[in-house]
Every structure is written in C-alpha cells, then in structure tokens.
Write a protein that binds this DNA or RNA. Structure first.
Lengths: 134, 134
DNA sequence: CAGGATCCTCTATGATACTG
DNA sequence: CAGTATCATAGAGGATCCTG
C-alpha cells in the first residue's frame, strides 16, 4: 500500500511506511507532542523557554526532538546571531494544522479518560480479589 | 481537564497524569493503536487472527498490549472454554469511540504526510550539500 | 490455541562535561 | 544561550520454551 495509497484505499497502518503509522510515531513521542502543543499555545518560544515550559526534558532530548520536528517541516528554527545567540522556534502552517487532530484527541481524553480510570480500577481490583481465570 | 490535575488552568499535557498525556501514551504505542484499528475494522478477532493481521508483533507484545487495552476498558476478552480454547477480542463502546479521533489523525496523515516527506527530503539534502550552519 | 515465564539484546534517554 | 559529544543504564521488546 505504499505506492498505490489512495485516500480511503484501505488504511494500512500495519505497514511501517504508512502515513498514519508514521504520524503516530511522531505525535506518540512524548516530547514531540509537548513541543507542538507548547508552541501552539505560545506561538513562539526560545530554546530555554521551551526547556522551562516542558519540565523534565533533558536538553539532549529537547534538541533531538526539535531537530526532528524541524526536519518534518512542522516547525521553524530561527537563529538571531546576537551575543549570546538567540534561537526561536515556531510552528509552520503545517505544524499548526496538526493542532487540529491533536485537539480531537484532547477532547476525547477529557470526555472519556474518567471511564478508563474506572475500568482500570475495576480491573486491578479483580486481579487481587477474584482471581480472574486467565 | 480534571480539577485535581495540575497547577495550570488549561490543557496541562505537561503533567504526566493529564488525561491527554495518558491517551497519547496509549495510542502512541505502536501495537496498541494497531490492535484498536484492526478491531475497529474487523469487529472481533481471535488472538491468532490478531497475531496474523498485525504482522510483526511478538506474542509477548500482543498479549501485553491486549491486557493493557482490556484493563483500560477499551476492549473485551471473551474466552470460549472449548478444546482448544478460543479467545475473542472486540472493542467496547468506549474503544469504538476512540476510533473517531484516530480517524482524524488518519485524515491528517493522508492529507499532509506528503508535505512532511518533502520537507524531510529538503532538510536531508541540505545537510549534505549546503552545510546548514548549526 | 492462548499465553505464562525466561533470558537476552539493543535502543532510547538521562547525566555530565565542553564550546562557539 | 544553545547547543554538541560521551558515557552509562533502565527497560522495551524479541526469541524461546513450556503448559492448561
């Protein structure tokens, strides 16, 4: 399905080269999605600002993530040759368009994650008490 | 966003306990998303069928993934005590509702991944030729 | 058939130190 | 400031063997 890949021609996410598959690889990435959302909210941020905003990222991971997103054309990297250097990151139109599907995910999460928690609690409860046959 | 969920008043995906964050952890998982999509398409599949459908999964990963999704209430596991045993998996209504946001991702991917490829090619090209200052 | 239990191997990621 | 370069390590995930 890599070459003859029509719009609805059979969603083959089972192929690693499938667009859907690769998209999930991107937004499924912990830091990448956080960067996208952060830039979607703030519009434009410096490296240090992103680093602060996304608590927990190592500088290595942040750099690596930013490079990947830049490579994918989802954000731009702007260097201001001042002293010290200043680098700003901002979403490209393409990157911004990705905020839309991400928002759908967010909405689903806000609407249903409570159910997931309930299910999870129930499941875990049975594990210790009823000895669900497996 | 749940009220007990973090310091900020908005989408705090930066908090690991944020619903959005956890959802991404789930669908971002390679096998989990494939299982959901497969069941969304087929409706109901046996372990062996899933295994065949999702080429590349090890039995360990498939089992592990299915357990996780079952725990989250996204799918049901039905055991038929025949000989040999027969186990069917199917999405719950909750799991099915997740197909919706996933479809949005798919649509984005089909509409924009070509641009990503172009950007990527251009980026990679410059790496070797123009020596983009970094 | 489904899946539990093990062992083992990479890879992703964090911590640290250095630089234009 | 905004990285790059190294080193070290937890843990994800694959391969195997075994059983109800």
């Amino acid at each position: 399905m890599s070459s003859t890949d029509g719009p609805t021609a059979g969603f083959d996410a089972f192929n690693a080269s499938c667009p859907s598959r690769r998209l999930l690889d991107t937004i499924g990435d912990k830091w990448a999605s956080l960067v996208i959302v952060a830039l979607g909210l703030e519009g434009r941020l410096r490296f240090s600002a992103l680093s602060a905003r996304i608590s927990g990222v190592s500088q290595k991971m942040l750099t690596q993530t930013l490079r990947g997103l830049e490579r994918d054309g989802l954000l731009t990297r702007t260097v201001t040759p001042s002293v010290p250097v200043r680098v700003d990151y901002a979403l490209t139109p393409l990157g911004m368009s990705l905020l839309e599907p991400i928002r759908h995910l967010k909405e689903w999460a806000e609407a249903h994650m409570a159910e997931v928690d309930t299910a999870r609690a129930a499941y875990d409860h049975n594990q210790g008490a009823l000895r669900t046959p497996r």
